[in-house]
Nucleic acid binder design. Structure first.
Lengths: 217, 217
DNA sequence: AGTGTATTTCAACACTTGTTTAATAAACTG
DNA sequence: CAGTTTATTAAACAAGTGTTGAAATACACT
């Protein structure tokens, strides 16, 4: 039942799926969703929660491992980002169709003004705070705001990847495939780490060279 | 009517809004959506199309301007990215509530497996191809796949910004606000440009150092 | 065995969904 | 002004919405 809901919610979102579609796909009666979960919204939340906890444990363990193997120094930005993204990319690539659906669902929830602030914050923010704390250690002296913005860019890039809309396939004429998450694993941490360094190396606005990006015309 | 639909679709997506809600907010009869647009789906597409054309003209003009002012050289990556993002960020920040809703809608559509491949590709890909062509000139010798992936990361980061879910507000304890698009304008091009350079400077997989990001454990 | 609880089934609930039909009003054309 | 097209209205359509109640079944335990 959770599997059926996961599959359908990932395709058409919360409102785009009826409880009857879910229960029919699961082969159970319509009334069971109210009985077991309390309602459609609670089922949606349960779908979201189920795998979130697994991921958080895995990501936290990986973060600690990265930290530990860097001692007594500070881990490289690439390795921190990898600890953040690898468990997700790995599950989506080789965890089976359930995981694939789940991440497509996360991609939608993260960009939804209705569900994003609720579900994402509730299930992932405690872990994200830990990551940001380590990221800040990796860019000492950097304004924390740069790290928060950098994190936002990272999440955006990552979640769009999970959507696997196939858009990059068409754009690149088949050169890249949105289902090729290994390619993302090889590129995203490097991309993001370089972005972080660029943000933190930024000169203050007053002293910026004239042809910078904040002015135009 | 398009305004009402835009506002509501941006909040709850295509399925989360009924035609009656739209027509009541617009102060017109329910039948008019079928009469004027042909149906709910066509109305949705019309909402999406309306502002897309305006944006594309503006972005293309800015891209040409950036190219022209760099002659006989090649424009900097930061300036190309800015030409891509500035018209959007500017409209969302100061274009009025309609534009704000529109970009929130784009954020959802872009991450939707149902609408993304249809609407985004149809309305934005012709322009995106032009941008990618210029980007490739700016990183000569770079494998085009790196550029496509870099573009995907850029779009992901940008569209999540448009969602303005307020998540970064909570994470940062109020230090950053997701509505502060000027901050994004100041950071995203630099972040992305550095990311592009890192991707293109990448050594081939075989010769990569052992503690790189593609292996773990 | 049989009793008590937990789960499942079926049918119905009141309500909303998008779209259509025919009648009316408005706008435009010659 | 008449004649025609275009736009708006109100009512109804059939199908689908999430949820609920009582009856039926399954299960666990002494």
């Amino acid at each position: 039942m959770l599997d059926a809901a996961e599959h359908l919610f990932a395709r058409n979102g919360f409102y785009g799926v009826s409880v009857r579609e879910i229960t029919e796909l699961a082969g159970v009666d319509v009334a069971l969703v109210s009985y077991h979960f309390g309602g459609k919204r609670e089922l949606f939340a349960a779908v979201f929660r189920r795998r979130a906890e697994i991921l958080n444990l895995e990501r936290l363990a990986l973060l600690q491992e990265v930290r530990g193997s860097a001692l007594p120094g500070i881990p490289a930005l690439e390795d921190i980002v990898t600890a953040f993204t690898y468990p997700l990319l790995e599950r989506s690539a080789r965890g089976g169709p359930g995981w694939k659906s789940y991440f497509a669902l996360v991609a939608q929830v993260n960009n939804s003004p209705e569900w994003g602030p609720v579900l994402m914050t509730e299930h992932f923010d405690p872990l994200v705070e830990k990551f940001i704390a380590v990221l800040r250690e990796a860019v000492p002296g950097c304004d924390p705001r740069e790290v928060y913005w950098g994190y936002q860019f990272l999440t955006g890039a990552l979640t769009l990847t999970f959507a696997e809309t196939g858009r990059i396939d068409k754009l690149s004429g088949g050169l890249c495939r949105s289902s090729d998450l290994d390619s993302v694993h090889q590129r995203l941490p490097r991309f993001v780490a370089a972005g972080f360094r660029a943000l933190c190396a930024r000169v203050p606005p007053a002293a910026r060279p004239p042809r910078g990006n904040s002015r135009r015309r």
